[in-house]
Each structure stands twice: as structure tokens, then as C-alpha cells.
């Protein structure tokens, strides 16, 4: 079997701060993920602020080094890559970021950002070929080259700017695009347009996406798989339709329920309470990260981190409610190898 396009293998990232008294923040804990080579996929990494989703994006892009574990691209550990392999990796794994306002240098015409990519990765033999490539890419994303080329960033709409960032990422013909909240700052109609671009790039150019988002509804609409993150770990992952339509982890259930339904007749249900943030952060070591907020908490949850249990076909939840189910096999995406657990009766 061919090596996965991209594999995140038991990766952890700890940020420490403070000079004398070191304070450690576990941004990502023993996280694994695979993008298989057989077909392009969109994998959603969904979570709230502090879930570690942006840290994961930075790790995959090689902008942050892991504290533990490996990022493996096409079978090669990125930490052990030669300079040439690294250049290939940088060309084939591209990024789209959230803010279409910040990434442009206001003093350059937008052509600059596109020409730079062509030059850096030597994508074209001469200027004419480069120009043709830029125009083709822009047109394929629904932009009219003559309307955007030669302009300065401030002369374009937010949607045009964001699609130029998509074009920039697509130009080097990548295999993977890490899209970190690409639509959270644009209007509803532009959002649909950009998400549609992503679907088409997957279908027509075979590009896989890591779609990092806090928005479950767009994840549901365009992704194949989803990882629901909570405080640096995976709460639940698997086929997106299964996870959203039949969430099994109590946190996923809470998230899905909390998305306001655009129907006045369908209520939110009972009020939820949030424990103070400091208390939640304090209890992340040892037991289940969600124990402090979980309505079903048992003794076992406070003592051991739950492995990922197989709760359905291609659906895994890191929750002791499903401890009768088989633990997800190590080596696949996800769970830390299940350590033997003491048997504790539910409280």
C-alpha cells in the first residue's frame, strides 16, 4: 500500500512560558491523522478556541516544530528531510489563512504575490508562461484576471482578496492545502463561493484539504472526515455525516446542539452552564479533558485519559461511555495505544 500523502503521528506540542517558574501549556497532545493517497479528501479539524486546531495547522505546515511525534509527508519524516525534499514539501503543502486583509503587502500590486510563487518554485520557463498560468488559475476560481491583475489589495473586495489567496495556494500545484478558517471573515454568499472552490479543487485537481474551522455547518457541508478537537485532544472523529448526525461524544453532542437552528420552532433546549475557564484548564492532566464539563462523568474519567473507542463504522469517540466497544487500533489515525485500564464501576 502506498504511503499516506500526509501523516501526523502521535504529535504533541507544549508551549512553555515564564523564565523562572516554567508554566506549560499543552496545545496538542498525542494527535494522529492520516490523509490517504487513494483519493483526495477534505478533512475538517473542528474545535473552539484553545482546542489546538491552529497549532495543528502550523505544525503540518512546518512553521512550528513538534515537541514529540512526527509529521510524515509521502513517507518521509519532515524533520529528516534534505533541503531538496523540503522545497518539494513546501511546494506541495500550501496554506490559506483566515484574514484576507493581513496577508497582502499594501504597497505591492496583487500580481506580486502570485509572481513570487512562480519565481520561488520555478513554475514557469518565462514571463509569458507565468502570466498564462496566473490567468488560468484566476479564471478557474471564478475571478476575471483583467479585473484583479494590476490592482492594489485595497482596490479589491474581501472576497476577491480571499480568492487570490486561494489562487496563490493553488498555483504551485499542491497535493495538500491547509485552510485555516478561510471563510470566517467573509459574507455568507462569498463563503459559499469559496467553499465551492475548495470542493472543485478537490474534484478537479485532486487536492486534499485540511479544513480548520470552528464552524460545524460548513465542515458538515464540504468535508469527508472530521476531527472534533477539545483542549488539544481528539474528542471524536470519523465520517463527517456520522459524527454530525449521530454524535457520540458528550462534547460533540453539546457542540452540535449549540449551533443555533434557523427555525424559531426548534428551540435550543435546556440552558447550559459553563464552568469557569481556569477550573477547566486545571484538570486537563490525568483524566478525560472533558470530565469537568461532562454530564455523564464517572470516576474512571477523572483517573485515566479515555482512548478512542470504535463507536460505529468509521466513527471513533474518546469517551469511557463506550468502553465496551473495541479500542481503535494503533497505527491508524487517532488514539494513543490503549493502556490497560482499571475496571471502575460507573458512579
Amino acid at each position: 500500500m502506498a504511503a499516506p500523502v500526509l501523516e501526523v503521528r502521535n504529535v504533541g506540542k507544549v508551549f512553555s512560558r515564564g523564565l523562572i517558574k516554567k508554566e506549560e501549556l499543552v496545545a496538542l497532545d498525542d494527535f494522529s491523522l492520516r490523509i490517504e493517497p487513494d483519493r483526495p479528501t477534505i478533512t475538517a479539524i473542528a474545535g473552539e478556541s484553545g482546542s489546538g486546531k491552529t497549532t495543528l495547522a502550523l505544525l503540518v505546515l512546518g512553521l512550528v516544530t513538534p515537541s514529540s511525534g512526527q509529521i510524515v509527508y509521502q513517507g518521509r519524516d519532515t524533520a529528516a528531510m534534505s533541503a531538496r525534499e523540503w522545497t518539494t514539501f513546501r511546494r506541495e503543502v500550501q496554506a490559506i489563512f483566515q484574514d484576507p486583509f493581513e496577508v497582502f503587502n499594501p504597497f505591492y500590486r496583487i500580481d506580486h504575490v502570485l509572481e513570487t510563487v512562480i519565481r520561488k518554485f520555478k513554475l514557469a520557463g518565462d514571463r509569458r508562461e507565468g502570466d498564462r498560468l496566473i490567468r488560468e488559475t484566476l479564471s478557474s476560481l471564478g475571478l476575471k484576471p483583467d479585473e484583479v491583475l494590476g490592482r492594489f489589495p485595497h482596490q479589491l473586495s474581501g472576497g476577491q482578496r480571499q480568492r487570490i489567496m486561494v489562487a496563490r495556494a493553488v498555483l504551485p500545484d499542491p497535493k495538500v492545502i491547509v485552510a485555516d478558517e478561510p471563510v470566517s471573515m467573509v459574507d455568507a454568499s462569498l463563503r459559499a463561493l469559496i467553499l465551492d472552490n475548495m470542493l472543485r479543487l478537490k474534484r478537479e485537481r485532486g487536492i486534499s484539504f485540511l479544513y480548520i474551522t470552528h464552524d460545524l455547518s460548513t465542515a458538515y457541508q464540504i468535508s469527508d472526515d472530521i476531527y472534533v478537537m477539545y483542549l488539544g485532544g481528539v474528542a471524536e472523529h470519523g465520517d463527517v455525516a456520522r459524527v454530525i448526525e449521530h454524535p457520540r461524544h458528550p462534547y460533540t453532542k453539546l457542540l452540535v446542539e449549540s449551533v443555533p437552528i434557523p427555525d424559531p420552532a426548534a428551540g435550543w433546549g435546556e440552558n447550559v452552564e459553563l464552568p469557569p475557564e481556569d477550573e477547566v484548564r486545571q484538570q486537563t492532566r490525568g483524566g478525560c479533558r472533558f470530565a469537568r464539563r461532562c454530564p455523564h462523568v464517572m470516576d474512571i474519567c477523572r483517573e485515566n485519559p479515555p482512548p478512542l473507542y470504535e463507536v460505529g463504522p468509521n466513527q471513533y469517540a474518546s469517551c469511557f461511555l463506550y468502553r465496551d466497544q473495541p479500542v481503535k487500533a494503533a497505527g491508524g489515525a487517532g488514539a494513543p495505544a490503549g493502556r490497560p485500564l482499571p475496571v471502575v464501576a460507573p458512579s
Partner: peptide, 28 residues
């Protein structure tokens, strides 16, 4: 929500994303 009358309201409501349907809402 149930009986929007203005064509803009109708388009606005049909372009709302939800967890009910797995299709991209049509932009206006």
C-alpha cells in the same frame, strides 16, 4: 422564517447554512 414574502428575505433564508442539509447553500 415560515412565510417570507420579500424575494430578498426568501433568498436570505434559503442561503442560511444548517446542520440539516449537506449541500452548500446557494449564494444570492
Amino acid at each position: 422564517f415560515a412565510r417570507p414574502k420579500h424575494p430578498y428575505t426568501q433568498l436570505l433564508i434559503s442561503s442560511v447554512p444548517s446542520l440539516k442539509e449537506r449541500t452548500l447553500p446557494k449564494p444570492i
